[in-house]
Design a protein around this nucleic acid. Sequence first.
DNA 1: ATTCACCTTTGCAAAAACGCAAAACGCTTT
DNA 2: AAAGCGTTTTGCGTTTTTGCAAAGGTGAAT
Lengths: 305, 305
Amino acid sequence: MDWDDLRIFLAVARADSLSGASRRLAIDASTVGRRIARLEQVLGAKLFVKTPQGYALAPEGERLLPHAEAAEAALSDAREALSGPGDLTGQIRIGAPDGCANYLLPQICARLCEDHPGLEIQIVALPRVFNLSRREADMAIAVSQPQAGRLVVQRLTDYQLHLAGHEDYLRRHPPILTREDLRGHRMIGYIPDMIFDRELDYLTETGADWAQLTSNSVSVQMQAVRTGAGLGIVHDFAIPFCPGVRRVLTDAISLTRSFWLIRHADDRRSQRMNRIADALAQGIRAEVARLQGLITLEGPSQERA
Amino acid sequence: MDWDDLRIFLAVARADSLSGASRRLAIDASTVGRRIARLEQVLGAKLFVKTPQGYALAPEGERLLPHAEAAEAALSDAREALSGPGDLTGQIRIGAPDGCANYLLPQICARLCEDHPGLEIQIVALPRVFNLSRREADMAIAVSQPQAGRLVVQRLTDYQLHLAGHEDYLRRHPPILTREDLRGHRMIGYIPDMIFDRELDYLTETGADWAQLTSNSVSVQMQAVRTGAGLGIVHDFAIPFCPGVRRVLTDAISLTRSFWLIRHADDRRSQRMNRIADALAQGIRAEVARLQGLITLEGPSQERA
DNA sequence: ATTCACCTTTGCAAAAACGCAAAACGCTTT
DNA sequence: AAAGCGTTTTGCGTTTTTGCAAAGGTGAAT
């Protein structure tokens, strides 16, 4: 039996398809299929039920899975035991909402990569809720705590959102001093049916019951605000990246949310994962504080409009 | 990283040489060397110190070893979880003193193989004490309990040894009724400096302080007795295989020893290993009882000489 | 009803891995 | 001192594995 076939087995079991595993492993799908076939022959068991729409775990495969994961954990521990205590190496995939992925993670991860040349970081911007238990990512940042799963959650930091618009846009309209002044403004927000977490339902919280220009992407929304398309709820930490964008009604409308770092429970005792998580947490905390601090310093003009 | 390289790593670490691992794995030594080299490169660590007389674990390899063993355990559990609850399969290597290996194990293991066609049993006759912790065998039968190691020991059965000679030989000599009558007889025994366990020091226990014809193999000694070369201490359970061999002085000289089954502590929770061990224990108990029973039934002639 | 997108499977050429044989090396023994 | 044994290492022909491209199939959407 070739131990390496178990690595392929794990990928297929998690991707539910040869092609998905193929992409993840960077191995051709035909090879993946052949190695699964070989594994099944050696073990004398049908691990998957094969359909034209994918590979699904058969009962025998279900029984194999936890042991394969145990082997994976042993391997992971092995690499950890070998790599020097100082440097972090290997690949890590971090899932995050696109606001975080766009305005926070790049700097933080760049810094991390600089400190650890052997480390390879993949930032996956999440347009949807993430399935961490399938190892679509090693860790994920979320705006709410997950309810179930063998996961460990830790709070990263609070952050704030405010209504904002570009100063050119604000100049073209009468001053906004009360909620009533919002009438007639073009609102920018999420595509309603693509709100995957109730924490993202910013607009209804402000009283605006609908938005004219919507996107599933925070950065697209931000770009809309920046180009003067209207008013939108934006992350404070994103504002420094968009010169000219000014907050309005900060007294009346102010939202606070939190970022949570979610990890596999199995990774808890992994020194490497712990260190990466710590670096990430510290980096996000510092970066949010830094960016939010820049706003009030740079432009107390939010009331000026 | 190819997970299968870890399997090769384990073999080399246990054999302390490429060639030893090569024999055990049935893979060419050059391939074993190349895969170790590849593994070292991927991990970026020198796992072995390479000398013309073998591969010795380097500190980094020492750190890797326990994790590789953890992976191996996971793999073993996996195969166990898959194989049907009824049948035993795979390969197992049993070490045993050559008396046991010659006169007990063949029948027992043959029966076991018959009941489980997928099972492959290797009987290693042991001319020396066995290093079970290096996985030279999966389990071992010994004549004394080991003192140390992560091992689990269970007693199999008691067995008896007596002085014996071939009836032709006995007929050519005066009757042996007391210990004094042994003077002048040619004694067959162990090569003194090759007695690897004090439990094997049969002759001094009888009062005979030296042997003229010696071997490190119980079966060779038995063969000597059988061909009328002299008198020797033989296992009772071996006598039925040697027509004409009769015990003498059974009242004055009677030795009792025990067989112990030694296994790795890690295998304790392995259902497969437990079943094999149980079958082995039960088989040996039954076979020793059966063979020892045959003696008294077949030939009460031990006093006749 | 048909096209499309996605998946798996098969055929074939290229690349990688493997086994064999020989060489190089050190240690032990004659 | 030299020959022999066991080891690792290297070179080469063969086998195996892999990736690519095309084919075959199924469900969803036009």
